[in-house]
Simulated scan of single mutants.
Amino acid sequence: MTHAQVTDKHPGELADVPGWFPALDQTLFTWFLEQQTKAGIKGDLLELGVYMGKSAILLGHHLEDGERFTVCDLFEGDAPDDANQAESAQSYASLTQQAFERNYLSFHDVLPTVITGPSSLVDEKVSPDSCRFIHIDASHLYEHVYGDIGAAHDILLPEGVVVLDDFRSEHTPGVSVAAWEAVLNRGLRPICLSTQKMYATWGDPEPLQEELLAMLRLRTDVGLSVQEAAGHRLIRTRSRGMKPPPFPLSRHYEEPAPAPAPAPEAASSAARPARPAPSAARRLAKDLLPPLVTRAVRRARAKRS
């Protein structure tokens, strides 16, 4: 993971918001949320760890009437332990609640419910069995991710989807251990894997897997494979030049200035094909023809006189 560029400007489109949210995961988030809406599944949304708000902005776009969206992050606050404080200082020193709110409100009229503090506060403030979609992208330390998964289990609806970020990255082994431990020992069932995230449920993953496979097999911009491991079917996905799904522009979006039109003379000069360079034979004829003609004229005059 590299540090995202921080900007004080209002974003004009989602791509302008700093953060790590690849096109493949934007596509999968959108698909899962739209599938829930089509199936009539109602419930709240929750994100643990928001950084500058890129994924939260997309989640907020899928909030239905009567649903609640909650986000939780330390922002400028103190971490609950020294290891988490060091992690926050190293990777998220530039994160502020003001920056998150500025970015979010560029796309939405109302902020989500914001919990400022460690993710351990969430199960006290979010009701059990209330959420249909949870994105966990907070601390990468094993103890914290273990707790976040436990909280998600209690908060998520039986048919809800939980997404674990950085479950396979080399710099986040704590997430990997906690994620696969939950699969092996805590009843979590994977739906699919992207390059960065695991999509899973404590319900039955098979109906969603069949619908997801049907959608992905129609696309040419995604690599797809299916494997079995420890009794779980794992759908593996990777981007092949995938573009992000369409997303509404920010209220601060400005059309790019049109490129200046070329000057008329320059345009006509550019339109006229270049004259080819004379060949060697033509250059020789040009040099020799005038003297030859002159000699022939002189001879004709001499004969007449």
Score class of each variant (00 low, 15 high):
residue 29 F to M: 04
residue 29 F to P: 07
residue 31 W to L: 11
residue 31 W to G: 06
residue 31 W to N: 10
residue 32 F to D: 09
residue 34 E to C: 09
residue 34 E to Y: 04
residue 35 Q to G: 06
residue 37 T to Q: 15
residue 37 T to D: 15
residue 38 K to N: 11
residue 39 A to I: 09
residue 39 A to T: 06
residue 39 A to R: 15
residue 39 A to S: 13
residue 43 G to T: 03
residue 44 D to R: 01
residue 45 L to R: 01
residue 46 L to M: 04
residue 49 G to H: 05
residue 51 Y to G: 02
residue 55 S to P: 01
residue 56 A to K: 00
residue 56 A to W: 00
residue 57 I to E: 06
residue 58 L to S: 12
residue 59 L to C: 01
residue 59 L to D: 07
residue 60 G to S: 00
residue 60 G to T: 06
residue 61 H to P: 08
residue 63 L to F: 05
residue 63 L to P: 00
residue 64 E to Y: 11
residue 65 D to Q: 13
residue 65 D to P: 14
residue 65 D to S: 14
residue 65 D to E: 15
residue 65 D to H: 14
residue 65 D to V: 11
residue 70 T to K: 02
residue 71 V to G: 09
residue 72 C to I: 03
residue 75 F to T: 00
residue 76 E to D: 09
residue 77 G to C: 13
residue 78 D to S: 15
residue 78 D to Q: 15
residue 78 D to W: 07
residue 78 D to H: 14
residue 79 A to C: 09
residue 79 A to M: 03
residue 80 P to D: 14
residue 80 P to H: 12
residue 81 D to V: 02
residue 81 D to A: 08
residue 82 D to L: 15
residue 83 A to D: 15
residue 84 N to A: 15
residue 84 N to D: 14
residue 87 E to D: 10
residue 87 E to T: 02
residue 87 E to Y: 12
residue 88 S to T: 14
residue 89 A to K: 13
residue 91 S to V: 12
residue 92 Y to M: 10
residue 93 A to G: 12
residue 93 A to R: 11
residue 96 T to H: 08
residue 98 Q to F: 09
residue 99 A to Y: 07
residue 99 A to C: 02
residue 100 F to E: 05
residue 100 F to P: 05
residue 102 R to Q: 12
residue 103 N to E: 10
residue 104 Y to P: 06
residue 105 L to V: 05
residue 105 L to Y: 04
residue 106 S to Q: 10
residue 107 F to W: 04
residue 107 F to Y: 05
residue 109 D to T: 09
residue 109 D to P: 00
residue 110 V to E: 15
residue 111 L to H: 03
residue 112 P to I: 00
residue 113 T to G: 10
residue 114 V to S: 00
residue 116 T to Y: 05
residue 118 P to W: 00
residue 118 P to G: 10
residue 119 S to I: 07
residue 120 S to T: 12
residue 120 S to H: 11
residue 121 L to Q: 08
residue 122 V to Q: 05
residue 122 V to F: 01
residue 123 D to Q: 14
residue 124 E to H: 14
residue 125 K to N: 12
residue 125 K to G: 06
residue 126 V to N: 00
residue 128 P to Y: 04
residue 130 S to A: 08
residue 130 S to M: 06
residue 130 S to C: 05
residue 132 R to L: 12
residue 133 F to V: 01
residue 134 I to C: 07
residue 136 I to Q: 03
residue 139 S to W: 09
residue 139 S to A: 07
residue 140 H to E: 10
residue 142 Y to P: 04
residue 142 Y to L: 12
